[in-house]
Amino acid sequence: MKPNIHPNYGKVVFMDINSGYKFLTGSTKKSNETIVWEDGNTYPLIKVEISSDTHPFYTGKQKFADKGGRVDRFLQKYNMKEKK
Protein backbone atom coordinates (compact mmCIF):
# COMPACT_ATOMS: atom_id res chain seq x y z
CA MET A 1 0.00 0.00 0.00
CA LYS A 2 1.09 3.54 -0.64
CA PRO A 3 1.84 5.45 2.55
CA ASN A 4 -0.19 8.50 3.67
CA ILE A 5 -3.16 8.03 1.31
CA HIS A 6 -5.40 5.71 3.34
CA PRO A 7 -7.60 6.82 6.25
CA ASN A 8 -6.79 5.54 9.72
CA TYR A 9 -8.59 2.32 10.58
CA GLY A 10 -9.52 1.70 14.19
CA LYS A 11 -12.18 0.36 16.53
CA VAL A 12 -15.37 2.39 16.95
CA VAL A 13 -18.72 1.84 18.66
CA PHE A 14 -21.89 2.24 16.61
CA MET A 15 -25.09 2.99 18.55
CA ASP A 16 -28.64 2.69 17.21
CA ILE A 17 -30.39 5.83 18.52
CA ASN A 18 -33.84 4.20 18.33
CA SER A 19 -33.11 1.15 20.47
CA GLY A 20 -29.86 1.95 22.25
CA TYR A 21 -28.21 -1.16 20.77
CA LYS A 22 -24.41 -0.78 20.56
CA PHE A 23 -21.70 -2.80 18.84
CA LEU A 24 -17.94 -2.52 18.55
CA THR A 25 -16.36 -2.89 15.12
CA GLY A 26 -13.57 -1.55 12.96
CA SER A 27 -14.09 1.51 10.78
CA THR A 28 -12.42 4.53 9.22
CA LYS A 29 -15.25 6.80 10.44
CA LYS A 30 -14.34 9.51 12.93
CA SER A 31 -16.37 11.09 15.72
CA ASN A 32 -15.97 13.75 18.38
CA GLU A 33 -18.07 11.72 20.81
CA THR A 34 -16.58 8.85 22.79
CA ILE A 35 -17.90 6.03 24.95
CA VAL A 36 -16.35 3.67 27.48
CA TRP A 37 -16.94 0.13 26.21
CA GLU A 38 -17.43 -3.06 28.25
CA ASP A 39 -13.71 -3.81 28.10
CA GLY A 40 -12.91 -0.53 29.90
CA ASN A 41 -11.40 1.17 26.83
CA THR A 42 -12.69 4.43 25.35
CA TYR A 43 -13.73 4.37 21.69
CA PRO A 44 -15.25 6.90 19.26
CA LEU A 45 -19.08 6.74 19.24
CA ILE A 46 -21.02 6.91 15.98
CA LYS A 47 -24.80 7.22 16.22
CA VAL A 48 -26.93 5.64 13.48
CA GLU A 49 -30.68 5.79 12.91
CA ILE A 50 -31.08 2.13 12.00
CA SER A 51 -29.13 -1.05 12.61
CA SER A 52 -29.76 -4.79 12.50
CA ASP A 53 -31.55 -4.36 15.84
CA THR A 54 -34.31 -2.16 14.38
CA HIS A 55 -34.31 -2.86 10.62
CA PRO A 56 -37.48 -4.72 9.52
CA PHE A 57 -35.46 -7.18 7.39
CA TYR A 58 -33.68 -8.49 10.50
CA THR A 59 -36.49 -8.10 13.03
CA GLY A 60 -39.30 -9.45 10.86
CA LYS A 61 -41.52 -6.59 12.03
CA GLN A 62 -42.62 -3.54 10.09
CA LYS A 63 -42.64 -0.50 12.36
CA PHE A 64 -44.47 1.97 10.15
CA ALA A 65 -47.90 1.67 8.58
CA ASP A 66 -47.98 1.17 4.83
CA LYS A 67 -47.92 4.58 3.18
CA GLY A 68 -48.55 3.27 -0.31
CA GLY A 69 -46.17 3.33 -3.22
CA ARG A 70 -44.65 6.31 -4.96
CA VAL A 71 -47.34 6.42 -7.63
CA ASP A 72 -50.16 6.27 -5.07
CA ARG A 73 -48.65 9.11 -3.04
CA PHE A 74 -48.11 11.22 -6.18
CA LEU A 75 -51.68 10.71 -7.34
CA GLN A 76 -53.03 11.56 -3.91
CA LYS A 77 -50.79 14.63 -3.56
CA TYR A 78 -52.04 16.11 -6.84
CA ASN A 79 -55.60 14.82 -6.47
CA MET A 80 -55.43 12.74 -9.63
CA LYS A 81 -57.01 9.45 -10.60
CA GLU A 82 -55.06 6.54 -12.02
CA LYS A 83 -55.64 5.91 -15.73
CA LYS A 84 -56.52 2.36 -16.63
Rank of each mutant, 00 (worst) to 15 (best):
F14Y: 05
L45K: 02
M80S: 12
K63Y: 14
N79I: 03
S31G: 13
T25W: 06
G20A: 06
T28I: 12
K61N: 07
K29Y: 11
D16A: 04
A65C: 00
H6I: 10
T28A: 12
P56S: 09
R73I: 13
N8G: 09
F14E: 08
L45F: 01
M80Y: 05
M15H: 02
G10P: 00
K11Q: 03
T59Q: 13
F74E: 01
H55T: 10
K29L: 11
K84Q: 08
P56C: 13
I5K: 01
T28Y: 03
T54F: 08
E82Q: 11
L45T: 00
K2L: 12
K84P: 00
Y9R: 05
N41F: 08
V12F: 09
H55P: 01
M1R: 03
K81L: 04
K61P: 08
K61R: 12
N8L: 13
K29Q: 10
Q76D: 12
K63L: 07
F64R: 12
V48Q: 08
V13L: 15
K29E: 11
I17D: 14
T42N: 03
T25N: 04
T28G: 04
V36T: 05
F74C: 13
Y9E: 13
G40M: 05
K77V: 01
M15P: 00
D53R: 15
F74G: 01
Y9L: 15
S31R: 06
P3K: 10
F74H: 00
R73F: 03
Q76M: 09
N4W: 06
K67R: 06
N41M: 10
M15K: 14
G20P: 06
K63V: 10
F23W: 08
F23D: 13
H55R: 12
N41L: 15
M1N: 06
P44F: 11
P3C: 10
D39L: 02
K2M: 01
W37F: 09
D16M: 04
K22F: 00
K2I: 15
K47C: 02
P7L: 14
K2G: 07
S51W: 04
F64K: 07
M15W: 07
W37A: 03
P56H: 10
M1S: 15
Y58W: 05
E33N: 00
V48I: 05
I46W: 02
